[in-house]
Design a binder for these strands. Structure first.
Lengths: 241, 241
DNA sequence: TAGTGGTCTAGACCACAAA
DNA sequence: TTGTGGTCTAGACCACTAG
């Protein structure tokens, strides 16, 4: 089943790594090289393309990173058996998503207060239940119309200075970017019936299906905050490759 | 506002590109190098780390690809002003997602027939309205329980052989992988009230909010198919970095 | 243990865009 | 115009692992 592919006559045209990448990719996507098949070793490909092994390596490394190839020392390179493609999902600053779409961005702070963490919040943030957290709700507008409702719970142990920031001027997202750059984030996307607060601010009927993006961020081994983003019913998260 | 960062004393410890990457990233994430600031040029960094420019370049290229740096010829390298981080969203073979989660995968073909393309389908696939398409609906089960409902419209102009395939044995996803490897895909994620067919097969109440993943795939300049994936109400798409 | 990919060096030329 | 990153070469040694 798994064969080892061979090459035809050597090419002598001038090449760069992107051309090699394209050529190998074409062989995979056209089916000439099937999933599971072996790919010639770097030295052979270098001879075929008339370049050094470094250049071939750059091309193959890129294809492996994209999920098309699997490489192992000593074991050689094969066409990925289960090509798990990855679509890059952009995680922008909140206002940027709106501006990028060509709309004017504005926001209104709806709540900004401290209080004790509830059970589920505490476990999400890996802090003690009842620990002091900062609750921040805001509505983001695109061209003056409600676009997304933001509800955050920030871990005050990790970012106490947030209480001194003027959040009516700077969106909390930008404050966090400057003061607590994201190191690690977990994202969950789900569909839920709009809860009352979100429905109210988004000006939609309660229980309308909406996209919920739930994000937990970490920096320096500590949880920074828990973010819930509720979108308009017609909102779509777009990605692809 | 935008300063040009300098380096302290040269390091002489042995380094590889990943250590340089980590060191530069630490300077960014700790706030020592602020968004918009200039990063020393490759040659200076090479001197600082005691390695060649190639090695430094590898590290910086990787950080740029990850969204932390912006690089321009002649213009130099700066810390990204709006760090747009990218969370990789995996696009697996349908059954794989279930198996990967540790469940047994099974599927039932619900519909497999040809017919004319409707207006919206035709425009999504960039074919003529009324062109012959192949409709395929299937239910995917995890440990015997309904997990996701798949509804496809395939462009028969791009993949006529699908009519000869035995789709009761091989999931259509695997057939497509082998015969029409994905070149380009657009993905849209939204929240909708479950349509009747999906609700029926997922065994949920109609109009329950569910996640809809809509995927249009292309190969060799032609649209291959349009996929609608309806998930259980509690389903979450997970990603992060 | 031997063969493959992973990495680094020291140097060179080129492409692009800022000054 | 000129300084920066982008790329390539020819060679070397190392790390991992399949046989």
């Amino acid at each position: 089943m798994t064969t080892t592919n061979r090459l035809s006559s050597p090419l002598t045209a001038p090449v760069n790594w992107q051309m090699i990448r394209a050529d190998v990719l074409e062989r995979i996507q056209s089916g000439k090289w099937q999933p599971g098949d072996g790919v010639p070793k770097e030295a052979d490909l270098a001879a075929h393309y008339g370049c050094t092994r470094s250049t071939v390596g750059r091309a193959l490394r890129d294809l492996a990173q994209a999920g098309f190839l699997e490489r192992r020392r000593r074991g050689g390179t094969i066409v990925a058996a289960n090509p798990v493609r990855k679509a890059p999902l952009e995680v922008p600053i909140l206002g940027d998503a709106i501006r990028k779409a060509g709309h004017a961005h504005d926001f209104r702070v709806i709540r900004a207060e401290t209080g004790p963490a509830q059970q589920d919040e505490a476990s999400a943030l890996a802090i003690a239940a009842g620990a002091r957290v900062f609750r921040y709700d805001a509505l983001h507008l695109a061209d003056g119309k409600p676009f997304q409702f933001e509800s955050r719970v920030l871990n005050l142990l990790a970012a106490p200075e947030i209480l001194q920031a003027d959040l009516t001027q700077m969106p909390i997202d930008e404050w966090l970017l400057r003061n607590r750059p994201l190191e690690r984030v977990t994202i969950e996307i789900s569909a839920i019936a709009a809860p009352q607060a979100a429905a109210l601010h988004l000006a939609i009927a309660p229980d309308t299906p909406v996209l919920l993006v739930r994000r937990i961020s970490w920096a320096r081994q500590k949880s920074i905050g828990l973010l819930h983003l509720y979108h308009q019913p017609d909102h779509r998260i777009r990605t692809g490759f």
